[in-house]
Amino acid sequence: MPSPSRNTWWLDAKWLVMASAIAAFAVVLGYDVRLGIATGVLLMATGFAWLLVALWFAAGARAQASPVRSLTERYQQQLRQRLLAEQRARESKAKALVKPGRAAKQP
């Protein structure tokens, strides 16, 4: 599963939307001050609502894990257990082959 790139945060679409909203606000404010103030209040209310929703979902308010995430975590857990079992099997096989009493009895 591909992970999002960490170094392209400035290419996110939300910045384009915010820049467009600010530009539209500036155009409307230049056209009519009262209409510009109303547009500014509407933009601020929308931004505040967006911020609340973003904080709500980022703070872990949804206790349910997504099915994809839980399936991925289960797969990784099984993979770790399988690798650990293989390592233990190799170690027990190596210990069985190298016993001090058996090495002296062989001709």
Rank of each mutant, 00 (worst) to 15 (best):
Q76R: 14
L16N: 04
L51W: 14
A65G: 08
R69F: 02
Q76A: 10
Y31P: 01
Q78C: 08
R74M: 02
L55F: 15
A19D: 08
M44I: 14
V17Y: 14
V68I: 12
E73K: 14
K105R: 14
V41R: 05
V28P: 02
D32G: 04
R82H: 15
S20R: 15
W9S: 01
K105D: 05
E86R: 12
I22H: 08
V27M: 07
K14N: 00
L52H: 02
A89H: 06
A96K: 12
T46L: 07
A21E: 07
R74N: 07
P2A: 03
V27G: 00
G30F: 12
T46N: 01
G101M: 06
F48Y: 03
D12K: 13
A59C: 11
G40D: 01
R80C: 02
S3M: 02
A103P: 00
A61Q: 03
S3G: 11
A38M: 08
S5F: 13
L43R: 01
A23G: 06
A58P: 00
L97E: 04
L52D: 00
S70L: 14
G30C: 10
A65W: 02
A54N: 01
W50Y: 13
S92M: 08
Y31L: 06
A24G: 05
V98M: 11
W50K: 11
R82T: 10
K95C: 02
S66F: 07
